[in-house]
Amino acid sequence: MYKKNNTLLLYSIIYFAFLYIPVMLLPIFSFNDAIHMVFPLKGFTFKWYDQMIHSSRLHKALMNSIKVGLVASVFSTFIALLAAKAFTRYKVRFHQLSYGAILLPFVIPEIIIAVALIVIWTGMGFQLGLVPVTISHILFCTPFCLLILISRMEGFDKNLEEAAMDLGENAWGTFWRVTFPLVLPAVIASLLLSFVISFDEFILAFFLSSSDQTLPMYMWGQMRFPKKLPHVLALGAVIIVVTSLLVIISYWLRNLGNPSGKKSKIGGI
């Protein structure tokens, strides 16, 4: 019945091109020996990469982004792991309500969360900076981690944990000997993806960080100056390649040794 549909296939390929060409342009022009991104291409060069490597402000922004990303990914994965266990293993009263509340930051416009955090943070008399940025990133990443971890936890049988209890393990032993090894790939995937999200996040950082720049803010600042553009392209190309690799690894991890045997849906996300 569904053997072939060339019209749809052609459409899919065109859409695919629409999806990828804009992203691919940045790496292509990052090797182009010209200030402006215009056709025809002029010639091959590494000088923008060289310029990028030697920018000290970029280094500082990079370090800030890594710091925020690491803290945010570890905290949000940990918080989501506990919550995923609660949602998949226990009958939670107000299940829908709690679940909805935790997932809400995923849909609320980021600018509203940013503005609300500015109001409370400055209202309490604190200085804006990387701390509120990190808090907002934890808030923003937790729903993603929760969806990844819940789909893994649902994928494996509740009886396995009961079997461990039945064989004499306490809650702690059961977690370390059974639950953790089985969810480990998803935990790593969750760490990687939340790191990528935090690393690429712009709005919250832009509103909440004041003078401490993260990498996306640094790029934002450079985009206005045509002369700086090529080295933003170089930086962008590197970021695209690295984050794509991390994401591919995390996809692969999520399907690795899936205990239910069937391929996990990335349907959650």
Partner: peptide, 27 residues
């Protein structure tokens, strides 16, 4: 069960209350 469940949920709920709900209310 509900005590166990809410112990596990508490970090996430505290995060949502402190970093989202109360800022929104203050806003």
């Amino acid at each position: 069960e509900s005590i166990r469940a809410y112990t596990l949920l508490s970090p996430a709920l505290i995060l949502v209350i402190l970093a989202m709900a109360s800022p929104l209310l203050l806003m």
